[in-house]
Design a protein around this nucleic acid. Structure first.
Length: 572
RNA sequence: GGGCCUGUAGCUCAAUUGGUUAGAGCAGAGCGCUCAUAACGCUUUGGUUGGGGGUUCGAGUCCCUCCGGGCCUACCA
């Protein structure tokens, strides 16, 4: 039994995520986790909320709450939505956990002892009115290049010119609008990634099977200009893992915390520890996933993320692990995604443009979204959500091809034979052909799933659904029944057996409907098919079932138009 | 400015990495079926692969150039 460690990029705590965020990491990770579990592998599937940093502090202030309280609340909201989308995390942790504090400080200490951390004095903009140092992005002013009045301190959105905050004319705090800004000196810890450049470079070079999107971003950072640069890993903030702690190999970092991108990936490990604690398990139970000296040598570790997260997962997190000099597990495969656009533009959290996770669940069951998003996952380039495409895909694939198949088979059986699998008759040439067709489709499906080629996997699965309709159409039990009821019984027995078979294969995509199919067929303990012919005889003659309710109601034109209008504008 | 990705049928996407006549699904057209959620099946119409040039026996694939789209560019996360 293989062991697979799967992590999804951890969503930022600040607000509800949109469908683009969902399809970029959590959802495909869940697909893979469900598939691997179904195949009998031992899976550890980890996600968490990323809670530290300036935006969390600001959002909490805006909500009028202490930041820890705000984060606890938003964690609960995100957890509920994750459950709503049937994301099957083994643990959904929090980067603000004690476990993460301990591990983050541990890694920092090890890096310090290994000479990979340096204290750097730098100048930064301080806002007196806000009482905090401001990240460049949080400084606004007039662009010296184009005159745009709302240019940010790192870049002008209007003319795309890169800026320093001091370049701005009439700079002000983006938080309060205050112009009372000063340049102050501050000291920070830097991770000396440059020391590890050759090691990282060789490591990336060894990953010949990784998506181009993943390796090209890593290489750009490794080779651009003077090569991989050292990176500040602390910030002047209150909310985060304290950078000064007992046993720290440096001094004078009081009042500073680690930068989110230092502690967030460590949370993958910490969340596994949180899982062990929650389960009442011991250290060795989570170490066997993460420590190659304690059993993780044979673990395959796969990460899922949007392309914006790639540098941190290909460079700074591996640098942290390599630099620790300890046998922590490095990632084996990174599956990265492009962006999903919305109706001709980008999804936008700040503008409330697009469909957000809570809204999606309020109008349709998770399976609809899961199917569309996964079968259109932005694997090779950015892809686009349109309501028309969503309506047509869902109606055709789920309602017509799969849902209607279940409906026509179970209802026909009920009317001719009752709600039990009929006996009599023999399988013949038509059944042998069906089994052989499905067998080759199934192999394709499994190969695509193993390789995480999600769109292609969805296509292969759909082909298996279609095969049922083709079979039924040519076998035509409704016509055969008039002359040869025994033969019709054999056909319908096969068709009924396709239902739990489909349910099992489809569960990674549409777990809800799959569950209902198995329940209706009273076949809850059917497992992944080892042998197609055998699997299609799982329900024996005499086995009772019931006709399920409509599995997927169609999306009407009226609904589509309503939603299209509803989600085009602003979210309140 | 630099780097990377990308442009294929009305739409969403493929194309075994340079190898026959560029394929699927949806939409459209025709036929069949009547068990079923007006569902299903079969057949079928759509392409000068963004434009131009080049390399090659052979180019969607490689090179150059132009045009369009996107992402990243290290202090948002």
């Amino acid at each position: 039994m293989a062991r697979i460690l799967i992590t999804s990029a951890i969503p930022y705590i600040n607000g509800i995520k949109h469908l683009g965020n969902l399809v970029g990491s959590q959802l495909p990770a869940d697909l893979f986790a469900r598939y691997k579990r179904a195949r009998g592998d031992e899976v550890m599937f980890i996600c968490a909320t990323d809670e530290h940093g300036t935006p969390a502090e600001l959002a909490a202030a805006k909500a009028g709450k202490p930041v820890d309280e705000y984060c606890a609340q938003m964690w609960a909201v995100q957890k509920e939505l994750a459950d709503g989308f049937a994301l099957s995390f083994d643990h959904f942790g929090r980067s603000s956990s004690d476990q993460n504090r301990v591990l983050t400080q541990h890694f920092a200490k090890r890096l310090g002892e290994n000479g990979l951390i340096e204290v750097v004095t730098e100048k930064q903009i301080y806002s007196v009115a806000d009482g905090r140092f401001l990240p460049d992005r949080y400084i606004e002013g007039t662009c010296p290049n184009c005159g745009y009045e709302r240019a940010r301190g790192d870049q002008c959105e209007n003319c795309t010119k890169q800026l320093e905050p001091t370049d701005l004319i009439e700079p002000r705090s983006a938080i309060s609008g205050s112009t009372e800004l000063e340049v102050r000196e501050t000291r920070h810890l830097y991770l000396r990634q440059s020391q590890l450049r050759d090691k990282l470079d060789a490591w990336i070079d060894s990953k010949t099977d990784w998506p181009v999107l993943t390796t090209s971003i890593a290489r750009k950072w490794l080779h651009d200009g003077d090569g991989l640069r050292d990176r500040g890993i602390t910030r002047d903030l209150d909310w985060g893992v304290p950078a000064q702690f007992e046993g720290a190999p440096w001094e004078g970092m009081e009042g500073k915390v680690f930068y989110v991108w230092f502690d967030a990936p460590i949370e993958y490990i910490a969340a596994t520890w949180e899982w062990a604690d929650a389960q009442g398990l011991s250290q060795k139970d989570w170490h066997r996933w993460w420590r190659t000296d304690e059993g993780a040598e044979d673990v395959r570790y796969v990460q899922f993320m949007g392309k914006d997260n790639v540098p941190f997962h290909t460079l700074s997190f591996p640098a942290t692990i390599m630099g620790s000099g300890e046998p922590w597990k490095l990632v084996d495969y990174i599956k990265s995604f492009n962006y999903l656009n919305y109706d001709g533009g980008q999804f936008s959290t700040s503008q409330g443009r697009g469909v957000f996770m809570d809204q999606a669940l309020s109008i349709l069951p998770a399976d609809y979204w899961r199917w569309w998003l996964l079968s259109h996952a932005p694997e090779n380039s950015d892809s686009e959500f349109t309501w028309e495409n969503f309506q047509v895909s869902v109606n055709k694939d789920l309602a017509d091809v799969l849902g209607n198949f279940v409906s026509r088979v179970t209802k026909f059986c009920r009317s001719k034979f009752g709600e039990t699998v009929p006996e009599g008759g023999e399988w013949g040439e038509a059944e042998r052909r069906l089994i052989s067709d499905i067998d080759s489709d199934l192999q394709a499906y499994e190969q695509f799933m193993d390789k995480m080629e999600i769109r292609k996997a969805a296509g292969a699965l759909r082909a298996i659904w279609v095969a049922g309709n083709e079979y039924l159409q040519s076998a035509a039990p409704w016509a055969v029944f008039k002359e040869d009821p025994e033969r019709a019984a054999a056909i319908i027995r096969m068709a009924l057996n396709l239902i739990p078979f489909y349910a099992v294969l489809s569960a990674p995509f549409i777990p809800g409907a799959s569950g209902r199919m198995l329940e209706a067929m009273r076949a809850e303990n059917v497992g992944w098919p080892e042998d197609v012919e055998e699997a299609l005889a799982a329900l024996p003659p005499g086995h009772a079932f019931e006709v399920p309710d409509v599995l997927f109601a169609k999306i009407s034109d009226d609904q589509r138009e309503t939603w299209q209008a509803e989600f085009s504008g602003k979210r309140d």
